[in-house]
Amino acid sequence: MHTVLNLLIWWPKRIAAHFSWAGPLIARIVVGYTFMLTGWGKLMNLPAMIENFRGWGIPYPELLTPFVSGWEFLGGLGLMLGLMTRICGGGLAVVMVVAIISAKLADIDSLETLLGFEEATYFAVFTWLAISGAGKASLDYFLERLAPKR
């Protein structure tokens, strides 16, 4: 039993420990880049996006559309850099909940359908980053090392 546990659990865990920085970095770059681009696209096409928000029943679309679009752009950029990752991830997780409720709620007929939405996957990644942080390959990590210990 010890040999099986060593081969299947402990040995891969020791190897993975050398690459613990890679998971958060890859996740941040992929979702950060995606949201930076979509946020920028929305900012450059605000009139149409305001109409979309209005059609989804989101209140105050003239106010919330530029706010959410800017949050997607700046939050995505922050994630890519690993800067204020917990704040950016948390805010974008909230955006995904609102997106699911406002644009997809009528389409949900099962847990499978809900979890099949790309917004659900983004929500999971953003929530993970908000809780776990940016990892060692980030500006957050660098800034934490510069700050005096509390």
Rank of each mutant, 00 (worst) to 15 (best):
L5S: 09
L8F: 09
W11Q: 15
K13P: 12
K13G: 12
A16Q: 10
F19V: 02
S20Y: 11
W21Y: 10
W21N: 06
I26E: 01
A27F: 12
R28M: 14
R28I: 07
V30R: 06
V31A: 12
Y33F: 03
F35D: 04
F35S: 04
M36V: 02
M36E: 05
T38F: 15
W40H: 11
W40A: 13
W40L: 15
G41Y: 07
K42F: 06
L43A: 06
L43W: 04
P47R: 05
M49F: 02
M49I: 01
N52A: 14
N52S: 14
F53Y: 12
R54D: 15
W56F: 08
W56L: 10
E62V: 08
E62S: 12
E62F: 14
L63P: 01
F67L: 15
S69V: 02
F73P: 03
G75S: 07
G76L: 00
L77I: 02
G78S: 02
M80T: 00
M80V: 01
R86C: 13
R86K: 13
I87S: 04
G91R: 08
V94Y: 09
V98E: 14
A99E: 07
I100N: 13
I101Q: 09
A103I: 07
A103L: 11
K104M: 10
D107E: 15
S110H: 06
L114H: 05
G116F: 12
F117D: 13
V125E: 14
F126P: 12
W128H: 14
A130G: 08
I131H: 13
S132D: 14
S132N: 15
G135Y: 03
G135I: 02
G135H: 04
A137V: 00
L139C: 00
L139H: 00
D140N: 01
F142R: 06
F142E: 05
E144P: 07
R145T: 04
R145S: 13
L146F: 11
A147I: 01
K149M: 13
K149N: 11
